[in-house]
């Protein structure tokens, strides 16, 4: 097995055996989204208007909440040192860990998003676009989030800092994701831009995260 797949497999195993990883993020996602009708009011029309934004902000926060699992535990028990010593470049190790994180947190959010759409009275024709947009956009959330997680990996209680570092960088993903979901008839352009954000993050985020991790491991 290639070292890349080995890291993915290891992280998936840990997530499964520790339990609660996927379930926790999805539960948070649904609960936050379900708070909004109480805050905004039960009027179906106003709910329909805010639904795309609520879904995306909830997905953003659910991802944010799970970021401390990305490197912190491996840093504390020393397995990150071992991973960094392997002949595989740290870039690919980070990419593998982010892929595992997306499979554990991002993909369940994609699957759960139609459910939240139903709760918030999202129009039926928007559902395929919502799934497509979350599928394209959530990898960017995991990738950019990895930068914040890596920068704070070596700091005690660094997790408090992550939202301040990461949320401003999430804004393009939020804008394009909401734009696609809110206007399914003209979703092609925002979806392509969302894809561009994810692709650029795919190249740059592991680079920055690997540099930050090397710093934490010194």
């Amino acid at each position: 097995m290639s070292p890349f797949l080995a890291v993915v497999r290891r992280d998936l195993l840990i997530a499964r055996r520790q339990g609660g990883g996927s379930l926790l993020a999805v539960a948070f996602f649904v609960v936050v989204a379900a708070l909004f009708p109480f805050a905004v009011g039960a009027d179906p029309i106003s709910l329909r208007q805010v639904a795309p934004g609520v879904i995306w902000v909830s997905a953003l926060l659910a991802t944010l909440l799970s970021l401390d699992r990305l490197f912190q535990a491996d840093f504390e028990d020393g397995s990150l040192d071992v991973l960094a010593l392997s002949p595989q470049p740290l870039f690919f190790t980070v990419l593998a860990k982010v892929l595992a994180h997306w499979l554990v947190v991002g993909l369940p959010l994609v699957i759960a998003s139609p459910l939240v759409g139903v709760l918030l009275n999202l129009p039926v024709e928007a559902f395929p676009v919502l799934v497509a947009a979350t599928l394209i956009g959530t990898p960017a959330l995991s990738l950019v989030g990895a930068i914040g997680a890596a920068l704070t990996a070596g700091i005690r209680r660094g997790g408090v800092l992550v939202p301040l570092l990461v949320l401003p960088l999430y804004i393009p993903t939020l804008i394009f994701g909401v734009a696609a979901t809110a206007d399914p008839a003209h979703a092609a352009e925002p979806l392509m831009l969302l894809g561009a954000v994810s692709l650029v993050s795919l190249v740059l985020a592991p680079l920055a995260s690997a540099a930050a991790l090397r710093l934490a491991l010194e």
Binding site: I147, L151, L169, P172, I175, A211, L215
Partner: peptide, 30 residues
Amino acid sequence: VFEDPEKAARAAAILALVGLINIPVIHFSV
């Protein structure tokens, strides 16, 4: 948040460079 100023400098440098790449993206998206 860093105690060692040398580490702080390098972590902050990574963040500044990531931010520099993001500023045009954020501005365009907004």
